[in-house]
């Protein structure tokens, strides 16, 4: 039994229902059939069993191979598998917004979505925003970094900085949908991101500035 057979209208000869009704030992034995590499990377898997499998994720415009288990979250794949440590593991359930990335252009908490569910969809992390992120630590060349990052720097919108990457990605998603947002709409729209330092007083004006800048064409 392999994933391809299972996907073919369930005619693999082993009923999936019988699989789960069987003894624990039988189920475990069946589950071991798929080893690493058995999942075709070109097609979305139909069944992926326990253990490591190599998948390809579209991260920041690049096709990147990464080993994941079914239980691996997108956040773990990014941080541990691809060394993209911008998105942060702040809350277990995504309630802080600290792990926000764009998946197919939509804001998602990378720690509440399985890596396997993200195959074939463009993923953008804070590392994928325009320019070289190291520019933030030195002289800020206008235009070298993303306007949202630049506004965060200009407004000193980070304190400890742990929530900042999630916030920046949430702002990107929010402004993509609401490019002319008012301050009140910005406050409401960013409710999914928490900052324990309380830097909201600087984040909100930073986002207001991005809206103004876009209006002025800068």
């Amino acid at each position: 039994m392999n994933p391809t057979e299972l996907s073919a209208h369930g005619k693999s000869g082993v009923s999936r229902r019988a699989f789960l009704k069987g003894s624990g030992a039988a189920a475990a034995a069946t589950a071991l059939v798929h080893g690493p590499g058995l999942v075709a990377e070109e097609t979305k898997p139909n069944v992926v069993s326990v253990g490591l499998n190599t998948i390809t994720l579209d991260v920041n415009g690049k096709q990147q191979k990464v080993d994941v288990e079914p239980r691996t979250t997108l956040l773990e794949a990014l941080r541990l598998g691809l060394n993209l440590t911008g998105a942060k593991p702040i809350s277990v359930d995504g309630s802080s917004g600290g792990s926000t990335v764009l998946l197919g252009g939509k804001p998602v908490s990378a720690n509440s979505i399985l890596a396997l569910e993200c195959i074939g969809k463009p993923i953008v992390t804070v590392e994928g925003l325009g320019g070289n992120s190291t520019a933030i630590s030195g002289e800020i060349a206008v235009g070298a970094i993303d306007p949202v990052c630049r506004a965060f720097v200009n407004h000193d919108a980070s304190q400890c900085g742990f929530c900042t990457p999630g916030f920046v990605m949430a702002v990107k998603a929010f402004l993509a949908k609401n490019p002319k947002a008012t301050e009140a709409q910005i406050r409401e729209g960013l409710n999914g991101n928490l900052c324990r330092c309380g830097t909201y007083a600087n984040v909100i004006p930073a986002v207001v500035d991005v809206v103004k800048g876009a209006r002025n064409g800068s």
């Binding site: 589950a31 979305k44 139909n46 992926v48 079914p70 239980r71 396997l116």
Partner: peptide, 9 residues
């Protein structure tokens, strides 16, 4: 806990 993942169509 480890689990098997199924993505029916």
């Amino acid at each position: 806990k480890a689990f098997e993942y199924a993505a029916p169509r």
